[in-house]
Computed example of a mutant assay.
Amino acid sequence: MAENGSMWAEKPWWCQPWTIVLTGLGVGSASWLFWQRWWVTAPVAAAILVWWWLFLVLVPATYRQQNGGD
């Protein structure tokens, strides 16, 4: 377990919350800028939201639960 109890302290820079959010925003924006079709961008955005929920909400909550936090 990390000294400060955060799983993010154990992760490299490219796996931090800010990089996950920026990458998702970049991919979603690029999808719209490249294709300019909502029916392409909507599934991309949905996949990004699932990815964010998984890695920014579910995984940290599970980590805290397993490591006696909160």
Score class of each variant (00 low, 15 high):
Ala2Tyr: 00
Ala2Pro: 00
Ala2Glu: 00
Glu3Phe: 07
Glu3Pro: 01
Asn4Gln: 02
Asn4Gly: 00
Asn4Ala: 04
Asn4His: 02
Gly5Val: 01
Ser6Pro: 06
Ser6Tyr: 06
Met7Ser: 04
Met7Gly: 03
Trp8Lys: 02
Trp8Gly: 00
Ala9Lys: 00
Ala9Gly: 03
Glu10Cys: 09
Lys11Phe: 10
Lys11Glu: 10
Lys11Tyr: 10
Pro12Tyr: 01
Pro12Lys: 03
Trp13Glu: 05
Trp13Ser: 08
Trp13Pro: 06
Trp13Arg: 09
Trp14Lys: 04
Cys15Ala: 15
Cys15Ser: 10
Gln16Trp: 07
Gln16Asp: 01
Pro17Tyr: 08
Pro17Ser: 01
Trp18Leu: 11
Trp18Phe: 13
Ile20Ser: 07
Val21Trp: 11
Val21Arg: 02
Leu22Ile: 09
Leu22Trp: 11
Thr23Trp: 14
Gly24Arg: 05
Leu25Ser: 03
Gly26Glu: 03
Gly26His: 11
Gly26Gln: 07
Val27Cys: 08
Ser29His: 12
Ala30Trp: 13
Ala30His: 01
Ser31Pro: 12
Trp32Gly: 01
Leu33Trp: 08
Trp35Leu: 10
Gln36Asn: 15
Arg37Gln: 14
Arg37His: 13
Trp39Met: 11
Trp39Ala: 11
Val40Phe: 09
Thr41Ser: 06
Ala42Val: 11
Ala42Trp: 14
Ala42His: 02
Pro43Lys: 02
Pro43Phe: 05
Pro43His: 02
Ala46Trp: 11
Ala46Gly: 10
Ala46Thr: 04
Ala46Ser: 10
Ile48Arg: 06
Ile48Lys: 05
Leu49Glu: 08
Leu49Arg: 02
Val50Cys: 12
Val50Asn: 01
Val50Ala: 12
Trp51Val: 04
Trp51Arg: 06
Trp52Glu: 08
Trp52Cys: 07
Trp52Ser: 01
Trp52His: 06
Leu54Trp: 13
Phe55Pro: 02
Phe55Val: 04
Phe55Cys: 11
Phe55Trp: 15
Leu56Trp: 05
Leu56Tyr: 06
Val57Asp: 07
Val57Lys: 05
Val57Thr: 03
Leu58Pro: 01
Val59Ser: 03
Val59Phe: 13
Val59Lys: 08
Ala61Arg: 13
Ala61Val: 13
Thr62Asp: 15
Tyr63Asp: 07
Tyr63Gln: 00
Gln65Arg: 13
Asn67Val: 10
Gly68His: 09
Gly68Thr: 06
Gly69Ser: 05
Asp70Tyr: 15
